[in-house]
Design a protein around this nucleic acid. Structure first.
Length: 297
DNA sequence: AAATTCCCCAACCGCACGATA
DNA sequence: ATATCGTGCGGTTGGGGAATT
């Protein structure tokens, strides 16, 4: 007697076979692992495509490589949760490097890029679910927020939005860029827009106004002042994770609106001089992207 | 107890890049 | 110069167990 849950599974399988063909994912069986390990012990590490061909496994080289690196190679800390120390390394490295999973993994012996990627994806998802604004723990996030350390560049607020933007340009050390808001914002956001060219259209003043209207937002009500002051600009980059649907953040124009409200907050804040939560990585990325725009070669 | 939903993680994909033919 | 191949990387998917209904 086949239970109804089994029938459901069978129906699902039939649907898959009829539709997109049999699932392309195949878990590695322990026999396959043994064959791969034996093959590598005998022949050493070399050409993965040949491993795929010569090992007798019906797996391609890429699949063998991945299996070896992520699961079979010696020294892996499998089934061991990340220690607090390891987590701190992940967060601090991620704050600086972004999603450079393999670079982060190099700091953590026994951990793979895939492990770290999965860890961060799950963590970000939890932040999203719980409405956590910053994806980084306070000790890391605070370094890059409004009220953070004094090691950050300073920016003077004159109550003037354009002047804050101008200071951003100075800080970014972009020698030949036109110091207009449009250029700055284009520089900042070109990596995050599908088509960098489109940013010129997207961010023109009339369209910006239209976008505000469309999103039913004014400059300051995308984020509250409190949110702005606690927001690391690093988090802007990951706003798809850290802001979430609660705040209605879906696409680049929303991200722009967030930055805009943040700039607005900075420029109209009561502090005359304030540390700028400009993250080292962002500084680097902004500068690089602006340089690319200025000099494509 | 069974069905459904959620969630994690392993496996996959496409792309970029460097080496070599 | 350029076509091909192998490798590595980051993003995404889906299998399957756990949790919930």
């Amino acid at each position: 007697m086949i239970s109804s849950s089994w029938n459901a599974k069978l129906r699902l399988m039939e649907a898959r076979i009829k539709g997109k063909g049999i699932s392309r994912k195949r878990s590695w069986r322990s026999e396959e692992d043994e064959i791969l390990i034996k093959h590598i012990k005998r022949n050493g590490l070399g050409n993965w495509n040949l491993v795929g061909k010569n090992s007798g496994l019906s797996r391609d080289g890429k699949s063998c490589r991945l299996r070896w690196l992520n699961h079979l190679q010696p020294g892996l800390k499998k089934n061991l949760p990340f220690s607090e120390k390891e987590q701190l390394v992940i967060f601090s490295e991620h704050a600086v490097l972004g999603n450079k999973w393999s670079d982060i993994a190099r700091q953590l012996p026994g951990r793979t890029d895939n492990d770290i990627k999965n860890f961060m994806n799950i963590y970000k998802k939890k932040c999203l679910k719980n409405g956590v604004i910053s994806i980084y723990p306070p000790e890391i996030s605070m370094k890059y927020t409004h009220n953070g350390t004094t090691e950050l560049p300073k920016i003077t607020s004159s109550g003037d939005h354009d002047s804050v933007v101008h200071q951003l340009v100075e800080l970014m050390d972009l020698p030949s860029i036109q110091n207009t808001e449009k250029d700055v914002i284009d520089s900042l956001f070109s990596p995050y827009l599908d088509n960098p060219q489109s940013s010129f259209e997207l961010l023109s003043q009339p369209q910006l106004a239209a976008a505000h209207q469309l999103s039913n937002t004014s400059l300051n009500n995308v984020l509250s002042s409190e949110q702005c002051s606690n927001l690391s600009i690093a988090d802007l980059l990951y706003s798809d994770y850290s802001m979430g649907t609660d705040l209605g953040v879906h696409d680049s124009i929303d991200i722009f609106l967030i930055l805009d409200s943040w700039l607005q907050f900075i420029s109209t804040s009561e502090w005359e001089e304030t540390s700028l939560p400009l993250h080292p990585r962002l500084l680097r990325e902004y500068t690089a992207s602006a340089s690319r725009i200025l000099d494509p070669n």
